[in-house]
């Protein structure tokens, strides 16, 4: 059972240089297996930096971010990340090659492909896909990694209502004991996710500091 813990996390970009810019300020957070967490914040609030810390892409300037008492940055195999600019993470030429490259177990691919309606896209080149289609492929790769920690950065941004419904439906196939964290500035669209796990939590981030609020 995974346990994600942030203790006294402080992040300053370009730390120790004249361009130092504080981004996160002493964040303490504990997220248990099966939790579904939505992190809400405006532009420049620090939510993308927090996502980078949670995924291990950024090591905190101070404090620690650990998954089961080991730094997340040392366990990339246990993390799945969906970027807002999904194109940057899809590096294989075609959809099927991308899925095969990312799958923890190839037998998982057909089910996820069916759930996300990716069948007709399997032989298409990544560059031929629309932004929404790339997002679906990115989500599929995140799901088939069967990671303990799944992080989604603005997964609904720029998608139409049908695509949003499809994405939310696809998230139902994520392991129930996995931790799912979604960063968004649009809480309403993402809210149904809170009911998919054992506990739904909403965290607000403002100027690099977090406060937890009751889910509506």
């Amino acid at each position: 059972m995974a346990l994600l813990e942030l203790r006294g996390v402080r992040v300053a970009h370009a730390a120790g240089t004249p361009w130092e810019q504080p981004a996160l300020d002493r964040i303490d957070l504990r997220i248990e297996a099966g939790n579904r967490v939505i992190i809400v914040g405006g532009n420049g609030s620090g939510k993308s930096t927090l996502m980078s810390v949670l995924s291990g892409l950024i090591v905190p300037t101070e404090g620690s971010c650990e998954l089961d008492h080991i730094p997340v940055s040392e366990q990339p195999d246990r993390v799945a990340l969906l970027l807002q600019n999904t194109r940057l993470q899809l590096t294989r030429p075609t959809v099927s090659e991308e899925l095969e490259d990312m799958a923890a177990d190839a037998s998982l691919i057909p089910g996820v492909v069916a759930k996300l309606g990716l069948g007709p896209l399997l032989n298409r080149r990544i560059d031929e896909l629309s932004g929404g289609q790339q997002r679906r492929v990115g989500l599929a790769t995140a799901i088939i990694r069967r990671a303990d920690l799944m992080l989604l950065d603005e997964p609904m941004a720029g998608l139409d209502a049908k695509s949003v419904a499809g994405l939310l439906s696809a998230l139902e196939v994520v392991r129930h004991d996995a931790i799912v964290v979604v960063v968004t500035h649009d809480f309403e669209t993402t809210e149904p996710l809170l009911h998919q796990g054992n506990v739904g939590r909403v965290i607000e981030i403002t100027d690099g500091a977090i406060t937890e609020r009751e889910p509506t």
Partner: peptide
Amino acid sequence: TVISMNRFRSKQHKDLVVRGMDITAT
């Protein structure tokens, strides 16, 4: 970002040349 996202790829595919080409193309 493209380079750092490579760390989340499965370790079973270790062909560095192919990986390098993919990253460059992306």
